[in-house]
């Protein structure tokens, strides 16, 4: 960075920048909603929780959603109560509202997010290409207990990861945590045996196919429902495992993708950095 400037100038400058930032924020905070004034009913999230975006869209088409001052009348949108385990054929069937936003209402964001992770993994491989793998040293060979233990734990962790991303629309979690859990199981395998190397080609194929599956699900939506990333499956009863339409499919794709990607990143990072 600014290597030629003396230390003290740099520190004063840094304190100055940080000071401006913090003062600016505190001035703005005083005008922000605080404590129990934070009200979900004032934001667009209200429709996501109540699952009545369709109703709001009808009001929008009739021209009654915005008032004269262009303020949206969010509290006037009609609402049908949702009962867990009974309401069915909702516009979005996920019991977990965060999931319904991540995958359905704002699914395009998530496609971008998956791409960001994919690009980061590819970037790591591009930057570290052609590096020697770390040669296992003799003195710290892991014990037999570690070796067997990580392998048993891997099976359990793998299963748990699959559980998390299949139940993404019902419980907290979803594709990203599920994939991270699976990758942590594979990290355990790295610890358990020096020189362990996963099947690199297999990881690449998995990664590519699951990413393509996500885009293809989007294109099926474009063909079937005339809109990219639209839900083309029935939504079922809220709370069932087979509900929420394509959310489970997308989360399976994301889970596999994130799992294989993070494992590939871990694998690429284990390179020889010793000085000689």
């Amino acid at each position: 960075m600014m290597s030629d400037t003396p230390e003290i100038v740099k520190k004063v400058f840094a304190i100055f920048v940080v000071g401006i930032f913090i003062v600016g924020f505190f001035v703005t905070f005083t005008q922000m909603p605080k404590g129990n004034e934070v009200n979900v009913n004032d934001t667009v999230s209200r429709f996501y929780v109540m699952k009545d975006v369709d109703q709001a869209t009808q009001m929008l088409d009739k021209g009654t959603y915005f008032n004269k001052d262009m303020v949206p009348l969010r509290n006037d949108v009609p609402y049908t109560p949702i009962t867990f385990g009974k309401s069915s054929n909702l516009e979005d069937g996920a019991a977990n509202v965060v999931t319904s936003i991540v995958v359905d209402y704002r699914g395009f964001d998530t496609l971008g997010e998956v791409t960001v992770l994919f690009l980061a993994a590819s970037g790591v491989m591009l930057v570290l290409h052609g590096e020697k793998r770390k040669v296992p040293k003799k003195k710290t060979e892991p014990s037999e207990i570690m070796y067997v233990g990580t392998r048993i734990a891997f099976a359990v962790i793998f299963l748990f990861g699959i559980y998390v991303f299949i139940h993404g629309h019902l419980t907290p979690g979803g594709g990203f945590p599920g994939g991270a859990i699976i990758a942590s199981g594979i990290l355990g395998l790295f610890l358990g045996r020096k020189g362990y190397s996963p099947n690199k080609a297999g990881l690449t194929v998995f990664e590519s196919l699951s990413g393509m599956a996500y885009v293809i699900i989007g294109i099926i939506g474009l063909v079937a429902e005339k809109s990219f990333l639209a839900n083309f499956l029935p939504t079922g009863t809220i709370g069932d495992l087979f509900s929420a339409g394509f959310i489970a499919l997308i989360y399976i794709a994301i889970g596999m993708k994130v799992g294989s990607e993070l494992s590939a990143v871990t694998n690429a990072m284990i390179v020889d950095t010793e000085e000689d």
Partner: peptide, 19 residues
């Protein structure tokens, strides 16, 4: 809506390039 392919196709092809 077909113009979503402007973003969709590069993504699909980028995912498939490793293959």
């Amino acid at each position: 809506n077909i113009a979503a392919l402007l973003v969709g196709v590069p993504l699909l092809m980028a995912f498939s390039i490793p293959l």
